[in-house]
Structures are given as C-alpha cells and as structure tokens.
Design a protein around this nucleic acid. Structure first.
Lengths: 254, 254
DNA sequence: CCACTGGCCATTGTGTACAATTACAGTGTT
DNA sequence: AACACTGTAATTGTACACAATGGCCAGTGG
C-alpha cells in the first residue's frame, strides 16, 4: 500500500512517447494481469485513489482503465459504489462458454483461410512460451498466454469485430478459469494448441474445427460448473465480505 | 454552426439526478442518434468543447460518451487529434456483415429456444413502430428502430456476451447502411421481421434461421459494397475536407 | 434489547485549470 | 515559385478541487 511498484510516473512522455494513452495501457495491463493471475481475487474492491497512488497517476487514468476493464467484463462498475473484480456466476460462465464456442468455430474456419506463414510461426512461438510458463509452475502466466494464443488466432482470422469480441470473451474466460478450475490440471493443454496449428497450416478446415471444438469441450470439462460446485459459488458470492474486512494485500505484489 | 441545436442543458443535478450516468446516457444517445440519422456525416469532427457547450455539460461527460461510441465503432478516436464520426471502408463493412451473419444465426437459434411470449409481443410492437417511421418518411428513425429490433432479438436469446456484441454490430451496421445504402429502398423490410417473429413464435428453428439468413442477404444486397460504389467511397474518404474547409472550395487540394 | 433515524465519513462523480501536443500560417531561404 | 522552418493558436491529455452520493455507526425511542 505504501510501496509504489515502480515510479513509472516520471518521464511523462519519454520512451515510446509518441502515443499518448501509454499510461492508460500500462495501468490497464497491470490490473488485467493481476486479475487473471489471481493476485486480485474476484470481489476485491478496486479503489480509484489507492490504485492511482500505486501507479503514480491520477484518478482520471485509473478511471479510464477501469472503464475498459468493465467493458471487457472482468471488472464490475457499480455506480457511486466503485469498482470490484468481477466474480462471474455459473450462469454467466455458461453464457461466456456458449458464445466462445460459437466464435471459436468461426475464427478457426477463417484462420484456416487467411492465416499467413508468419502468423503460424508466431502461434507456435506462443505455444512454446505457454509450455514454458506451465513448466515453471507459473499458472497465472500460463492462463494469460493461453488466452493470448486464442486472441492471436482471432487476429489471423482477419475480422476486426470478431477480434474485439474474442478479446472480451478470452478475458472473461480467463477469469472464469482462474475462479472455477479444479486446480490439479493445467487448463489449456498446449498439446491441443499445437495440433490445432498443424491443422490450420495444412489448411484442413474440418479437422481444425473439430480440434477446436474438442479443445473447448476439454476446457470446460475441467471446470466445476456443475451442481456440486456450490461451494465455489458461495465463495464467489461472499468474497466481497472477505475483502471489506482486512484486504489482505490485494495489490502487494502487483 | 454556432447554433445550439437544443438547450437541453437542464438544471445541473435537478430532476432525476439520483442516478449518475444519466447525463452520459443522454449525450451518448443524442450523438448516436445524430450519427445514425446522418445529421452528422461520416468524417465529421466531434470537438469536445463544442459538444460540451451544446449539451451544457463539461468535457468530462462528452469524453465518456465519445469513448463509449468509439468502443462500439461508430466514432473514431485519434490520439491527440480528437474524435470523428467513423467512416467504415468497404472492407470494414464486409467484416461487420460477416460477423453479423454469424451472430444473427446463433441469436435466432437461441431466441427460438428462449423467447418468452412477452418478448415476442414486444418484438411485434417494435415492428409496428418501425413501419410507422418508414411510412412517415423518417428514414433515420426507421434505421434506428430496425437496429433496435435486432438488438431486442438478441436479448431474447438470453446470452449477455452476445447481446453486447450484437449492440456493437448493430450500431456499426446502421452506420454502414446510412452511408452505403442506395437511397431508393427501405433497407430493412418490416415484413421480413414479421415473418421472423412468426417462425420464432412457432419455435421453428430451421425456418427462423433460414429467414434470418435471407434477411441478411437482403440487407447487404441493397448496399453498394461492390466495385462501382467507388464514388460513395471517395466521398467518405474526403468528407473531412468538406468539413474543415468552407463550402466554397471543398475539393481544393484534389 | 432491538429497531429506527440522524449525522458523519469515505468514496465516487463532475467541473475546471493547466500542460502538452498537433496543426496552421507566416516568413524566410534556396 | 516552391519548400522548409518556426512561432502561434487551438484542441486534447492530465491532474486536481469540490460537490454529492451511499454506507456506517452512534444515539435515541419503543
């Protein structure tokens, strides 16, 4: 709370100064990462002033970042009552997964048509990074990189609205995974990602879609979205109570 | 240019001041409407200060509204250079329509499963309103109401992410229609909407999807997205010149 | 002892001042 | 005459101050 993670506030426009909005992006990315890596638990209150102090920027910037995060569904903005990390209900999680199946199918078909050799190479690189993260035991980074893989795939599909939607869906999916996954298995086997890339490279649309759908099934079969997950659900429901008392260190290691 | 279109600068905080965000919504809705009804042509610069004066609010509110509009793709936010009404290229329009086909198909299937009797009644009401608008010759309102019909359908599908995506797609579609439609025909025949409602009410998924796909084909068959629409395209490309210069010599640098 | 009401405090919502960046125009040079 | 440069003006980006809302707690009455 008293420690700023990095000065970051100085050189008001140095570095890659050309683009304003850099500060926004930094704050956004840091909060986003912290949420996906579960350093910020669902339900945690995100005070504008506290965040502003941590990042060394004014509330204006924080507010914009929170607004973006709210748009993507990982943060809930309650009027006059501040922002909290979203804690998706089981029903919301189901809706997200339904939408994702839909979008991933379309993205896969389009990626088979339009993916360039460079993009395929990048995708392979991302799978490598993902594997590294999991082998290092860095589950949070693994979840994030896995999401970035799916986002990259969307970019290969060359459809701007779908990319934007996929970004939102992947964000929420990552949050759901972080919240609901039964911890003992890695959630997104890079092996399936590799097979998918191979099918895309071979321009085999049918196989690629099959693999993707299988992959989707695989992902949510690992989640406790069924009845017996009531305990997890309760935890999510009451997590705001846990936070209002003693916030632990919600932003300690940001 | 120096006229205020309407005072609207109600008493600050009186009235229904209870809900914050009301001002945002008013400003957002007004700009949105103006864009869709082509009172604000694509490429028009949206100065924060000017808008603030017109609506009687500070730049803070305007900025938020513009941010929302940008997120939905009807406004383009250029860093340090202000906001302009988006002028989608033919390629962007194609991408939007591709995404919409995808989403509308899914929405239709889900709506057949989940639409309630009340929602169906509301949909019929909306078609009536739409017909009224067109018969009154109010093309702008008609476009907007037609979009709202499709949005309502998405709500009947009971999937929050899809609703959000559909909102963005419908907004962009409306802008595209306003920009590219060959003016002589109404763009979204309410007749097709009525048939669609009937199929949904009868819980006939196959027919409903067929009708919807037909409807989509119908819509973009009316658009000049082909080669010969180059003139419209040029107009869009250079419309910012028309705005910044005097009307006398709009094509000075050509 | 419990429930309700009133005021206090913390946090968000809004307006505004200032800083920084960009665009434009005028001037000077080649 | 055309191009480049510099100074100025306008607009956006950021920070901050103040107002208002909502939650919390104490005090009071039943």
């Amino acid at each position: 709370m008293n420690e700023q993670l990095q000065p970051l506030k100085k050189q008001p426009r140095a570095g890659k100064a050309g683009r304003s909005g850099t500060q926004d992006d930094i704050v956004y990315a840091h909060i986003f990462e912290a949420i996906l890596e579960q350093r910020l638990a669902p339900g945690t209150k995100l005070s504008e002033e506290a965040l502003g102090e941590i990042f060394g920027v004014s509330r204006t910037i924080i507010r914009r970042a929170l607004s973006r995060l709210a748009h993507e569904g990982v943060v809930l903005l309650r009027p006059n009552r501040g922002a909290v990390v979203a804690s998706p209900s089981v029903e919301e999680a189901r809706q997200v997964f339904l939408a994702r199946r839909l979008v991933e199918r379309a993205i896969t078909e389009l990626a088979v048509q339009h993916a360039t050799a460079e993009e395929i190479a990048e995708l392979r690189q991302m799978v490598d990074d993902e594997r590294d993260s999991f082998s290092r035991g860095d589950r949070g980074a693994g979840i994030r990189l896995s999401g970035e893989f799916h986002l990259k795939l969307a970019e290969a599909a060359k459809n701007a609205p779908l990319i934007s939607f996929q970004r939102s869906l992947v964000s929420q999916t990552s949050l759901i995974i972080a919240q609901y996954e039964s911890g003992n298995r890695s959630h997104c086997s890079y092996d399936e990602h590799t097979q998918l890339i191979n099918a895309i490279e071979a321009r085999n649309a049918e196989l690629a879609v099959d693999l993707m759908m299988h992959h989707m099934n695989h992902i949510d079969s690992k989640l406790n979205l069924d009845e017996e997950s009531a305990s997890d659900d309760l935890h999510a429901v009451f997590s705001h109570l846990l936070q209002t008392k003693k916030p632990g260190r919600p932003v300690a290691k940001l």
